[in-house]
Protein backbone atom coordinates (compact mmCIF):
# COMPACT_ATOMS: atom_id res chain seq x y z
CA UNK A 1 0.00 0.00 0.00
CA UNK A 2 1.38 3.40 -0.94
CA UNK A 3 1.69 6.23 1.54
CA UNK A 4 -0.81 8.21 -0.47
CA UNK A 5 -3.39 5.53 -0.04
CA UNK A 6 -2.77 5.04 3.69
CA UNK A 7 -3.18 8.76 4.34
CA UNK A 8 -6.71 8.81 3.01
CA UNK A 9 -7.87 5.67 4.69
CA UNK A 10 -10.83 6.16 7.02
CA UNK A 11 -12.13 2.75 7.94
CA UNK A 12 -12.45 -0.70 6.44
CA UNK A 13 -11.98 -0.03 2.68
CA UNK A 14 -13.11 3.59 2.96
CA UNK A 15 -10.93 6.35 1.58
CA UNK A 16 -10.98 10.13 1.48
CA UNK A 17 -9.87 10.90 -2.05
CA UNK A 18 -10.00 14.70 -1.99
CA UNK A 19 -12.01 17.66 -0.72
CA UNK A 20 -15.37 17.94 -2.46
CA UNK A 21 -14.64 21.45 -3.68
CA UNK A 22 -11.52 20.14 -5.47
CA UNK A 23 -13.67 18.45 -8.14
CA UNK A 24 -15.79 21.01 -9.95
CA UNK A 25 -19.03 20.11 -11.70
CA UNK A 26 -18.14 18.25 -14.91
CA UNK A 27 -14.64 17.42 -13.68
CA UNK A 28 -13.09 14.20 -12.47
CA UNK A 29 -9.96 12.94 -10.78
CA UNK A 30 -8.35 9.55 -11.06
CA UNK A 31 -6.81 8.16 -7.87
CA UNK A 32 -5.18 4.92 -6.83
CA UNK A 33 -6.88 2.92 -4.10
CA UNK A 34 -5.64 -0.53 -3.10
CA UNK A 35 -3.60 -0.61 -6.27
CA UNK A 36 -6.61 0.11 -8.45
CA UNK A 37 -7.23 3.26 -10.45
CA UNK A 38 -10.57 4.82 -9.59
CA UNK A 39 -12.19 7.71 -11.45
CA UNK A 40 -14.26 10.05 -9.27
CA UNK A 41 -16.65 12.31 -11.18
CA UNK A 42 -18.72 15.30 -10.20
CA UNK A 43 -21.82 15.01 -12.34
CA UNK A 44 -24.02 18.03 -11.68
CA UNK A 45 -23.12 18.05 -8.00
CA UNK A 46 -23.52 14.28 -7.58
CA UNK A 47 -20.38 12.23 -7.22
CA UNK A 48 -19.79 8.94 -9.06
CA UNK A 49 -16.83 6.57 -8.81
CA UNK A 50 -15.83 3.88 -11.32
CA UNK A 51 -12.84 1.63 -11.82
CA UNK A 52 -10.66 3.06 -14.59
CA UNK A 53 -10.89 -0.09 -16.64
CA UNK A 54 -12.96 -0.24 -19.81
CA UNK A 55 -15.06 -3.40 -20.11
CA UNK A 56 -13.81 -3.71 -23.70
CA UNK A 57 -10.04 -4.13 -23.43
CA UNK A 58 -9.10 -2.53 -20.15
CA UNK A 59 -8.52 0.98 -21.52
CA UNK A 60 -8.40 4.01 -19.19
CA UNK A 61 -12.02 4.96 -19.80
CA UNK A 62 -12.22 7.31 -16.79
CA UNK A 63 -9.66 9.53 -18.52
CA UNK A 64 -11.80 9.87 -21.65
CA UNK A 65 -13.81 12.85 -22.80
CA UNK A 66 -17.24 13.64 -21.42
CA UNK A 67 -19.52 14.60 -24.28
CA UNK A 68 -23.07 14.20 -25.47
CA UNK A 69 -24.06 11.64 -28.07
CA UNK A 70 -26.43 11.06 -30.94
CA UNK A 71 -29.75 9.35 -30.43
CA UNK A 72 -32.36 8.83 -33.13
CA UNK A 73 -36.00 8.09 -33.63
CA UNK A 74 -37.91 7.06 -36.72
CA UNK A 75 -41.34 8.43 -37.55
CA UNK A 76 -43.22 5.91 -39.63
CA UNK A 77 -45.78 8.47 -40.77
CA UNK A 78 -43.29 10.88 -42.29
CA UNK A 79 -40.49 8.32 -42.80
CA UNK A 80 -38.16 10.83 -41.19
CA UNK A 81 -35.31 9.88 -38.93
CA UNK A 82 -34.71 12.57 -36.31
CA UNK A 83 -31.21 12.81 -34.94
CA UNK A 84 -30.78 14.40 -31.56
CA UNK A 85 -27.62 15.42 -29.70
CA UNK A 86 -28.44 14.44 -26.13
CA UNK A 87 -26.98 13.71 -22.69
CA UNK A 88 -24.49 16.59 -22.99
CA UNK A 89 -21.52 15.99 -20.65
CA UNK A 90 -23.01 12.67 -19.48
CA UNK A 91 -21.38 10.31 -21.98
CA UNK A 92 -17.96 9.04 -21.02
CA UNK A 93 -15.95 7.90 -24.05
CA UNK A 94 -13.10 5.44 -23.62
CA UNK A 95 -10.10 7.14 -25.25
CA UNK A 96 -8.80 3.86 -26.67
CA UNK A 97 -11.74 2.85 -28.93
CA UNK A 98 -14.67 5.12 -28.22
CA UNK A 99 -16.86 2.84 -26.10
CA UNK A 100 -19.61 5.00 -24.63
CA UNK A 101 -20.75 4.85 -21.00
CA UNK A 102 -23.46 6.77 -19.20
CA UNK A 103 -21.41 8.53 -16.53
CA UNK A 104 -24.45 8.77 -14.24
CA UNK A 105 -24.88 4.98 -14.07
CA UNK A 106 -21.78 3.40 -15.61
CA UNK A 107 -23.96 1.59 -18.17
CA UNK A 108 -22.38 0.87 -21.54
CA UNK A 109 -24.53 2.35 -24.33
CA UNK A 110 -23.74 -0.33 -26.91
CA UNK A 111 -23.99 -3.56 -24.93
CA UNK A 112 -26.65 -4.84 -22.60
CA UNK A 113 -25.59 -5.88 -19.10
CA UNK A 114 -22.16 -4.27 -19.50
CA UNK A 115 -21.23 -1.52 -17.06
CA UNK A 116 -18.19 -0.03 -15.41
CA UNK A 117 -17.53 -1.39 -11.93
CA UNK A 118 -18.91 1.33 -9.66
CA UNK A 119 -18.07 2.22 -6.10
CA UNK A 120 -20.05 3.91 -3.37
CA UNK A 121 -19.06 7.54 -3.02
CA UNK A 122 -20.33 10.21 -0.67
CA UNK A 123 -19.39 13.64 0.66
CA UNK A 124 -18.61 13.49 4.39
CA UNK A 125 -17.55 16.64 6.23
CA UNK A 126 -16.56 18.27 2.96
CA UNK A 127 -14.48 15.26 1.84
CA UNK A 128 -15.21 12.88 -1.01
CA UNK A 129 -15.22 9.38 0.47
CA UNK A 130 -15.02 6.32 -1.77
CA UNK A 131 -15.79 2.83 -0.50
CA UNK A 132 -14.32 -0.15 -2.29
Amino acid sequence: MTGEEADGRLGEREYVVTAADEIADGERIVVQLEGREIGVFNVGGEFRAYTNWCAHQGGPCCEGSLTGTVEASYDRETRETSLEWTREDEVLNCPWHGWEYDVTTGDCLSKRRVRLPSHDVEVRDGDVVVSL
Partner: peptide, 15 residues
Protein backbone atom coordinates in the same frame (compact mmCIF):
# COMPACT_ATOMS: atom_id res chain seq x y z
CA UNK B 1 -17.71 -1.56 -34.90
CA UNK B 2 -21.01 -0.68 -33.25
CA UNK B 3 -19.36 -0.47 -29.83
CA UNK B 4 -16.57 1.66 -31.31
CA UNK B 5 -18.92 4.05 -33.05
CA UNK B 6 -22.44 3.57 -31.64
CA UNK B 7 -23.37 7.20 -32.26
CA UNK B 8 -23.06 6.55 -36.02
CA UNK B 9 -25.82 3.92 -35.90
CA UNK B 10 -28.21 5.62 -33.50
CA UNK B 11 -31.38 3.86 -34.67
CA UNK B 12 -30.14 0.57 -33.25
CA UNK B 13 -31.54 -0.21 -29.83
CA UNK B 14 -29.56 -3.38 -29.31
CA UNK B 15 -26.38 -4.95 -30.62
Amino acid sequence: EYSFRRSEAPLLEKS
